[in-house]
């Protein structure tokens, strides 16, 4: 979304970016106050990819309707995890993707409401496929794959969410008593598949290097190639060092209880090992507040 907004700014549009509350949720009053008389569109992520919090789409949509602005929702992370019904939700445009819900890579969809009608511009021109909105021969196998993935997700969602919630709680119970650990994002208003924690005084990338058997990420997958701390965690008001110390753990359709227990043990072991190596941990133990030290940024 951010890159799309930046491109719109380049074209001369004005974009207002809103910070979230420390729990990751959007403050509806702040949202309402940010809408200007010339605002034409609002875009919100249904479920955040890094911290898993679920925004109140119905309430945000109601505000948009009242103000007469188009409401776009990025639901890439929500499908198969959050129950929603577009026939009752005040959403005008919704982006969907297949691969986040166990479907094939390379296909997604844009829901465009007919009533009240939303007019959109084509991104690609040519063959006139899909009413001229997206030219190009339709990939039948991809479409079937996405549809089937969504069908299975819908069928299994109820039971899966219960099972995954139990694994989430098991993991949380195993890790929450580690000293100086911080949970990122609202604890209830979130998808159970995601658990994001910061292990203070341990740098996330080095932690990932130690827990070799686990596929996790620090910050977001999109920024871990760079050295910048996660902007999502910074938006929660987390300090740079806590953002650097974050670990995003996700639970999937095939995750087992044994794997959760293994993950908890491995993470605890490596956090302890890296804290033994950490000069910041020593300072914390000596009662030195590292925020009072004049560090030389590099």
């Amino acid at each position: 979304m951010l890159d799309t907004c930046r491109e719109l700014e380049r074209q001369g549009f004005e974009v207002t970016y809103l910070d979230v509350q420390p729990d990751g949720l959007l403050d509806l009053e702040v949202f309402k106050a940010a809408i200007r008389s010339d605002t034409i569109l609002a875009s919100v992520m249904y479920v955040n990819n890094e911290i898993g919090v679920i925004q109140d789409i119905a309430a945000i949509g109601a505000i948009c309707r009242e103000k007469g602005i188009v409401f776009h929702v990025d639901a890439a992370q929500a499908t198969g995890r959050v129950e929603f019904d577009l026939s009752r939700m005040p959403v005008d445009l919704m982006s969907l993707t297949s691969h986040k819900t166990y479907g094939p890579k390379g296909i997604g969809a844009l829901f465009v409401r007919r009533k009240p009608r939303v007019r959109i511009e084509a991104q690609m021109h040519g063959g006139g496929h899909e009413r001229g909105m997206r030219s190009g021969t339709l990939p039948t196998h991809q479409i079937v794959g996405m549809g089937e993935a969504y069908r299975i997700a819908k069928e299994e969602m109820g039971a899966e969410n219960v099972r995954i919630r139990a694994l989430h709680d098991r993991m949380l119970a195993g890790l929450k008593d580690v000293e100086q650990v911080f949970i990122n994002g609202h604890l209830e208003q979130r998808v159970p598949h995601n658990l994001n924690m910061s292990f203070n005084y341990v740098e996330g990338e080095s932690l990932i290097m130690g827990i070799k058997g686990l596929a996790v990420s620090s910050g977001s997958a999109c920024t871990s190639a760079s050295l910048e701390p996660s902007y999502v965690l910074r938006a929660l008001g987390r300090s740079d060092e806590l953002a650097h110390s974050s670990l995003r753990m996700t639970i999937g359709r095939w995750t087992t209880e044994e794997e959760i227990d293994y993950a908890v043990e491995t993470i605890k072991l490596n956090v302890a090992k890296l804290r033994d190596l950490s000069p910041l941990w020593d300072m914390y133990k000596e009662g030195i507040d590292i925020s009072t030290i004049q560090w030389a940024a590099h």
Binding site: L227, P229, H298
Partner: peptide, 28 residues
């Protein structure tokens, strides 16, 4: 890792260097 640990900072024969910043993700 080799030679992990600390010497007494106050020891006359010890030189200590601390560089980097937590906000940048590295402190040595």
């Amino acid at each position: 890792p080799r030679n992990v640990g600390s010497f007494d900072k106050g020891d006359e024969s010890v030189g200590t260097g601390m560089v980097g910043a937590p906000a940048c993700g590295d402190v040595m």
